[in-house]
Design a protein around this nucleic acid. Structure first.
Length: 463
DNA sequence: TGAAATGTTGGGGCG
DNA sequence: ACGCCCCAACATTTC
């Protein structure tokens, strides 16, 4: 009678889960385990985790398995369970955060010393980061050549549904409620439920909705925040409720069915590619979350303006498009990608506040908060990242707003104070005459033209 | 996955 | 008719 543990981490799905499939194929009895570690989660993500675990529990129950919930040090819980239940083998899908790699490495040594087999699989990347190399055998620092190579060498695993499920093993488990992952007072997640369906089914729903309704024209529509033209897959991918190759398969299928334009399909795939690139960078440069990828930024004189930071966080900068984005983030746990670039450029180049401060705010407020994506993307915008936007690429919040929210739909959705402002002034209400009612909406925090000059002077000075 | 400054061109108003 | 100026419109360079 062979017994195994599948340790769920960032792979909260039953379908298309390599480690789980192997565990089920090889063993008669199984413990499905999740260990809660708040250090690996952003604040808003607690809400997501709760619902995702409910969904996972339900799926497992359909196969007469229950999910064992534990909190605390994974090593202790695993060793205890292994002893108690005479476990032969522990399965997991790999994580790529530096702290997780260190933890898993040490754990593997400990378990194997005790005669327990450890089987780890790739459950979340198209390519393992160490397998993608350039001609000279080193790792890519630029996205386009990286992605060309990565997409060329990718091998999509065959995914067959699990036919035979092992029997469950009775264990002690926390109740999910006891973890108190859901906010109570205040219930800042009230609006989340209307936008999101955490779990495997919700991930599939978003993928299908995207392909059916939004893939055609994605290349143009993706930049319009007032439109629901993006996939909204990021939190699902982060929690591993869907695999990137499931996305790849579905897009390739849509291409073959030829009811979508190829440019849009490939552009969307390249967005999956940016996720791969972020993980790749984090793997090869583990200091990515703390340290500038471009070393010359070490001496950059970031401002420590707490009041400006607070106004950015609260969506009170006086720039409508910026404030709309920051308010969307606060209320929904999400922000449209185009607007993320605008608010990040604004924080780092108009307010001259350290990208790490912005990354920290995103970490706590985003449902899709992901160490690799968050670090790589903030560094990219700030100009200090790999293959980054050059430092002189400074977004003009008014031009961006006029270009990507031409009707002001997105602004009006999130900045109610400006509902009476005519379109002509909506992107720059400070230029409207005194006759225009802007309610309590604040004057702009900075003069963009002057802020831009200062930022450029700083950047020039750095070299 | 910018924007501003600067350069060039060509049409039209006008003396 | 002609040269001159103005200034869009577009292109190129620079930050």
């Amino acid at each position: 009678m062979s017994k195994a543990i599948h340790w769920f981490r960032q792979d909260l799905r039953c379908y298309d889960n390599p480690a789980l499939s192997h565990a089920c194929a090889q063993h008669e009895q199984l413990i499905a385990l999740y260990i809660y570690d708040k250090r690996t989660l952003g604040a808003a993500q607690h809400w997501w985790l709760h619902h995702s675990l409910v969904s996972l529990q339900k799926s497992l129950n359909e196969h007469q398995l229950s999910l064992t919930l534990r909190q605390g040090d994974p090593v202790d819980h695993l060793l205890t369970l292994i002893k108690e239940h005479h476990i032969d083998t522990v399965y997991w899908n790999r994580c790529y955060e530096p702290a997780s790699i260190a933890r898993d490495k040490a754990l593997k040594v400990t378990l194997e010393a005790q005669g327990v087999d450890v089987i780890s699989c790739n459950g979340s990347l198209l390519n393992e980061p160490w397998t993608v190399k350039n001609q000279s055998g080193s790792w890519f620092k630029v996205f386009s050549p990286f992605w060309r190579q990565a997409i060329k060498q990718v091998e999509i695993p065959v995914c067959s549904p699990i036919i035979r499920w092992p029997a469950g093993i009775k264990t002690l488990s926390d109740s999910l409620e006891s973890w108190q992952l859901l906010p109570t007072k205040p219930d800042w997640a009230a609006a989340f439920t209307t936008c999101w369906q955490p779990g495997e089914a919700g991930a599939m729903r978003n993928l299908n909705r995207f392909i059916d309704q939004h893939l055609t024209g994605y290349k143009q529509q993706r930049d319009i925040p007032a439109k629901e033209a993006t996939s909204k897959l990021s939190p699902h991918l982060h929690f591993g409720e869907i695999s990137p190759w499931a996305v790849l398969r579905a897009i390739e299928q849509a291409k073959q069915d030829s009811h979508c334009d190829l440019q849009s399909a490939d552009h969307f795939l390249s967005e999956v590619g940016w996720r791969e690139f972020s993980y790749y960078l984090l793997y090869h440069f583990p200091q990515l979350p703390e340290q500038n990828f471009k070393q010359e930024f070490a001496s950059f004189p970031w401002h420590h303006d707490m009041e400006a930071l607070r106004r950015w966080q609260q969506g009170m900068t006086g720039f409508p498009i910026i404030d709309a984005g920051m308010r969307e983030l606060w209320h929904t746990g999400y922000m449209h990608n185009r607007v993320r670039m605008m608010v990040a450029s604004f924080l780092t180049k108009d307010l001259l506040i350290d990208w790490r401060v912005g990354a920290e705010w995103f970490w706590h407020t985003l449902l899709d908060a992901d160490l690799a994506n968050n670090s790589a993307s903030w560094q990219w915008v700030a100009g200090c990242g790999a293959d980054a936007a050059p430092y002189f690429r400074i977004f003009n919040p008014v031009l961006q707003s006029e270009k990507f929210d031409p009707q002001g739909t997105y602004i009006k959705q999130w900045v109610a104070e400006l509902s009476e402002v005519p379109l002509k002034w909506l992107h720059k209400p400070w230029e409207a005459g005194t006759g225009i009612n802007v309610g309590t909406y604040p004057a702009p925090l900075v003069n963009h033209a002057k802020a831009r000059e200062l930022a450029l002077a700083y950047y020039r000075n750095m070299k």
